[in-house]
Design a protein around this nucleic acid. Structure first.
Length: 586
RNA sequence: GCGCCUGUAGCUCAGUUGGAUAGAGUACCAGUUUCCGAAACUGGGGGUCACAGGUUCGAUUCCUGUCAGGCGCACCA
């Protein structure tokens, strides 16, 4: 509809210029907006005001010229000039009703489009380190990432959802060592657990599993393990050096093979937990991509070689540095440490190069906002390898600040003090949790009050939307109880009977849905969809309270039932994009 | 100190890419059910859009500065 109006206005304007009614000038992009106020019709165009300057004419004068030259159409009944020079269009009743037929005909396809025209896009999100269970902080990334993914799918992109598994590096070694030490304790060894180790209960569980599988075969005396180590911090030493010493002990005392067993027990134990949590949360992936595989297949080395060949690396103090400052980064970055180990950044360069080489038209990274400082260097590395940086889009998700009542909670994976995503889901419910997360813009700081989300879960906005859906279902149950039936064809024929203000409002709201989907998808802003659904639900509830749907006037009744069926369909479509269910009863 | 994000009703947040009289939820107050589900609806009060300049027909939106908050500035991941 907007496009049609835009086109008509454009041709009228070019005609006017050709006839010298308007001076020669470049036409800006013609904007058609939904009106806020019903008094202003359905659509508004501000083109007259935009042209006023370059045409050196009064905006109302331009608007008058334009309106007089407008051709007759069957879908516009009124055109007004208002305010400083707005041109307001009012849709014909017939056109407004048409949307209901469209919705019923397209069903769950309504709202889909081919804006993306089959372009491939990869979306990587959550990608939490497998050093502990997912907590509520990760939930926002999961809800946002899967919503963005399904939005993009809805508008015609070929979407590939991916989780990057950081299964290499020091943090994982710390986890493996933590598991082993807990295992030793479980086997009766006396030791003081390092302050920098992972202290969560899940480590105990994994250690128990290890004991069941391997018995006492991985036991080394604690006295030997802790012999000749830098003291831990509480004892006046250094916690980092202490834990590094323990890692080295674990590796040498156990040997490569046994150490790998412990390491994998930790990794797999946690990763399978993460997979299950995400699946239960309604977040699914097409691929789980292993960082270790990048190293083992030499992709990291290849990326480093590529940078060396491009003369983008130099050696300093025994390490290899990448000249990221040449591409706008604050400082150069190390990719190979003086001890020969590649850095996390090196893996990330390789990973992004790999993403590019897999041929995605667009690569989307969804990161926690604390990683924002990382963007320049990743883009720099792609630029240095001659890749088009524009293909990479990094979306940042602000962390939710957690409150329990008025008490702010500090979260730490290491200390084992956090609310897990699973706990949240079990207490608040999947639907409510997802909707809650996606209700706010991702770049918006968010206060997440657990007490509120849990104790007042009935007040959660998601129920408001779901209830609208359930109410429609309830009406139809009522209908069959009275041995009546909805006749779709008859209903569609009677749509002109929908003359109430509430019905007009609903028709207009329904027709906005495809626009909302498009702009939510293209701007990566699922919260627009969430808000739309609340608006739609509100219009429906208002309508429900104002009018009966099952009335003696059978044609009117059929028209109304047809309208609310369309409402039900759009709610289902919208909620399903957000990964929220549409229950028939609540 | 430098960089990124944010500042809108008591609280939590929207605001259609610069448009018309700035909106919801919640909380508070007053109402609505012999009627398809009251998890709903109707009405009411509540604002210097952090502050000060600038850009123009027009600014909550764009630019600059100030103030306040969050995050980031590793040979950690």
């Amino acid at each position: 509809m907007k496009d049609q109006l835009r086109q008509i206005i454009e041709t009228v304007l070019t005609d006017l210029i050709a006839q010298n009614s308007l001076p020669e000038m470049a036409l800006p992009k013609i904007q058609i907006d939904r009106t806020k106020d019903k008094l202003h019709g359905d659509f508004a165009c501000n083109i007259a005001m935009m042209l006023a300057r370059s045409a050196k004419m009064n905006p109302r004068q331009i608007a008058t010229l334009l309106v007089e030259a407008l051709p007759e159409t069957d879908f516009i009944t009124r055109v007004d000039i208002a305010g400083p020079g707005f041109i307001n269009f009012t849709l014909s009743a017939d056109t407004a009703q048409q949307i209901v037929k469209t919705i019923l005909a397209e069903g769950d396809q309504f709202g889909r489009s081919d804006l993306g025209s089959g372009q491939s896009v990869q979306v990587e999100f959550v990608s939490a380190n497998p050093t502990g269970p997912l907590h509520v902080g990760h939930g926002r990334g999961a809800a946002f990432g899967s919503a963005v993914s399904s939005l993009l799918k809805t508008v015609g992109f070929d979407v590939h959802r991916e989780y990057y598994v950081n299964d290499a590096g020091r943090q994982m070694d710390i986890l493996a060592t933590s598991v082993w030490l807990r295992y030793l304790q479980a086997c009766g060894e006396e030791l003081v657990f390092p302050s920098n180790g992972y202290k969560g209960d899940y480590v105990l569980t994994i250690a128990d599993g290890l004991k069941q599988e391997y018995g006492l075969s991985l036991v080394k005396p604690a006295t030997v393990v802790f012999d000749d180590l830098v003291a831990d911090e509480p004892d006046g030493g250094d916690k980092e050096q202490h834990i590094d010493g323990l890692i080295l002990k674990a590796q040498t005392l156990l040997g490569d093979q046994a150490y790998r067993s412990v390491f994998d027990a930790g990794l797999n134990g946690i990763l399978s937990d993460i997979r299950r949590d995400l699946a239960d949360f309604g977040t699914n992936y097409d691929e789980w991509f292993s960082e270790r595989s990048l190293m083992e297949t030499g992709v990291v080395d290849k990326a480093i070689d590529a940078l060396k060949e491009a003369e983008m690396l130099y050696q300093k103090e025994g390490a290899w540095w990448f000249k990221s400052t040449e591409f706008g980064d604050e400082k150069d970055r190390v990719v190979v440490r003086d001890n020969g180990q590649t850095t996390y950044f090196a893996s990330d360069i390789a990973y992004h190069l790999n993403k590019y080489q897999r041929g995605f038209d667009t690569v989307i990274d969804i990161w926690g906002s604390d990683h924002h400082g990382y963007i320049p260097r990743v883009k720099a590395s792609l630029a240095a390898m001659g890749e088009n940086v524009e293909r990479l889009k990094v979306l940042l998700v602000q962390f939710a600040v957690l409150y329990r009542g008025s008490e702010k909670m500090s979260m730490s994976t290491r200390s084992g003090q956090f609310v897990t995503l699973r706990e949240l889901r079990e207490e608040v419910g999947k639907d409510a949790a997802r909707f809650f997360y996606v209700l706010r813009g991702a770049d918006q700081h968010m206060d997440f009050d657990l007490e509120l989300a849990k104790s007042q879960s009935n007040d959660n906005p998601v129920y408001y939307v779901q209830y609208a859906h359930a109410r429609v279902c309830s009406v139809f149950r009522q209908l069959s109880e009275r041995s009546l039936a909805w006749d779709k064809t008859e209903g569609e024929n009677q749509l002109p009977r929908l003359t109430e203000d509430h019905e007009q409002a609903l028709l207009s709201m329904l027709s906005r849905y495809p626009e909302v989907i498009n702009s939510s998808a293209m701007n990566y802003t699922p919260h627009l969809l969430a808000h739309y659904l609340m608006d739609l639900a509100r219009d429906f509830h208002t309508y429900y309270n104002a009018h009966q749907f099952i009335v003696d006037d059978v044609p009117l009744s059929q028209a109304r039932l047809t309208l609310i069926t369309a409402v039900k369909q759009v709610i289902t479509n919208g909620l399903s994009v957000l990964g929220v269910s549409s229950p028939e009863t609540m």
